[in-house]
Write a protein that binds this DNA or RNA. Structure first.
Length: 267
DNA sequence: ATGGTTGTTACACAA
């Protein structure tokens, strides 16, 4: 095998959607699946479902009922130290090395409703998390292939939201957030692979609110889920392989996020 | 402009 396909998916409870995930793995067979919002402890993670699907290697950081991330892999996985982006001890990051790539799987804080750190401590937490990411990735060795994926809860560009104008004061698309994200991308030398693959004018969404009668008809989405490659990894990201599995937003009991995939060459 | 839905949990809260 000469390729390493990586999928990131905010699953919004892995226990509730274990069967959906297993069917997805059976149909599409990515090499690596990075899940966010597993919403359970490590011990409650449905590991047998993944093992039976051929994903024997797992790195899980869970907590009771909230947050939680897991990276599962067909290939051997080496757990790495967890970058300390969260100052509240949440299970929001797992770092793993798979086939020579460092893969950081991140669930960035949503940040609450009010985009003012003075009155909303969740937003302050989000900004602190972003600041720590900028410092960490600025110091990260650019020669080590690094892929950063996850639900970053920010839609950075105009066409990453259904209405730029209407969302400028909505958490996930405020200038203070999108500018912080731009600084992280700059510091790490990252390439936002969705935008490497698609023109800036093309609308791209990976999340649609549950609070909509018909998510597909109204299509008021945002691109919150990301796949970034640093300078050592980006040349190995295969052109034309970026994909959003829109159909996973449909069907019975979907997550509010769709899975997103990119394929890399084996190092 | 407001309220709309979902998941985990325990009699709200986070998203």
């Amino acid at each position: 095998m000469s390729e390493l396909s990586v999928v990131t998916w905010n699953i919004n409870s892995v226990r509730l959607r274990a069967n959906r995930v297993a069917a997805f793995l059976k149909e599409h067979g990515p090499d690596v699946l990075c899940l966010q919002e597993i919403k359970c402890h490590e011990a409650q993670f449905p590991a047998s479902v993944f093992r039976e699907a051929g994903y024997e290697h797992m790195h899980i950081a869970g907590q009771k009922g909230l947050h939680g991330v897991a990276t599962v892999s067909r290939l051997p996985l080496e757990p790495l130290d967890t970058p300390e982006f969260c100052n509240l001890g949440h299970a929001r990051i797992v770092a793993s090395r798979i086939d020579g790539y460092d893969i950081h799987n991140i669930y960035l804080p949503a940040g609450g409703d009010e985009p003012d750190p003075e009155i909303n401590e969740k937003f302050a937490h989000k900004l602190e998390f972003l600041d720590r990411m900028e410092k960490f990735y600025g110091a990260f060795d650019k020669a080590t292939p690094l892929i950063v994926v996850g639900d970053l809860n920010i839609a950075p560009f105009e066409h990453d939201v259904w209405s730029h104008k209407q969302l400028l004061k909505i958490v996930s698309h405020t200038p203070v957030e999108t500018e912080a994200m731009a600084r992280i991308v700059e510091a790490g030398g990252f390439n936002d692979l969705a935008r490497r693959e698609h023109a800036a004018e093309q609308k791209l969404y990976t999340w649609w609110s549950y609070r909509s009668k018909d998510w597909a008809a109204s299509n008021r989405g945002r691109r919150l889920d990301h796949i970034w490659a640093n300078p050592a990894a980006e040349p190995h990201a295969k052109p034309g392989t970026y994909h959003i599995y829109l159909e996973q937003r449909g069907g019975e009991k979907p997550s509010d996020h769709a899975p997103v995939q990119m394929t890399f060459g084996r190092l």
